[in-house]
């Protein structure tokens, strides 16, 4: 699976922290379940969810810079002409409908 620049993607609305196991998640809360678009494929990096707990078998995952309109992230705030990017691993992204 790979996403071309401009593809609309939705961040998985998943909360592993809430499942009672120790995890290290680098997907900010405020982008989960939100839709943005691929700015660029940054490269492939070891999955921090494995690396953070010392696992040597961390899979390499594609890392994308994803752009969001800030108004979509924080409805009701005055976010005219404001965007926000987050660098997100492929396993957190799904093609938006």
């Amino acid at each position: 699976m790979s996403f071309a620049p401009g593809t609309r993607v939705t961040v998985r609305n998943d909360w592993p922290e809430a499942k009672g196991v120790k995890v290290h998640i680098r997907t900010p809360h405020f982008v989960r379940g939100k839709t943005g678009r691929i700015e660029t494929l940054i490269g492939e990096f070891g999955d921090p969810e494995f690396l953070a707990i010392g696992r040597k078998d961390a899979p390499k995952r594609a890392l994308y810079m994803v752009v969001f309109d800030r108004a979509d992230l924080f409805p009701g705030t005055n976010a005219h002409n404001e965007t926000m990017t987050a660098d997100l691993y492929e396993n957190w992204l799904e093609a938006a409908p």
């Binding site: 680098r26 997907t27 900010p28 940054i42 490269g43 990096f45 921090p48 890392l63 810079m65 752009v67 800030r70 005219h80 002409n81 404001e82 965007t83 926000m84 990017t85 987050a86 660098d87 997100l88 691993y89």
Partner: peptide
């Protein structure tokens, strides 16, 4: 200026 897009860049990963 209002016309300048503000882009907040969150360093969430390896960059």
């Amino acid at each position: 200026p209002e016309g300048t897009e503000i882009r907040v860049v969150d360093s969430t990963a390896d960059m």
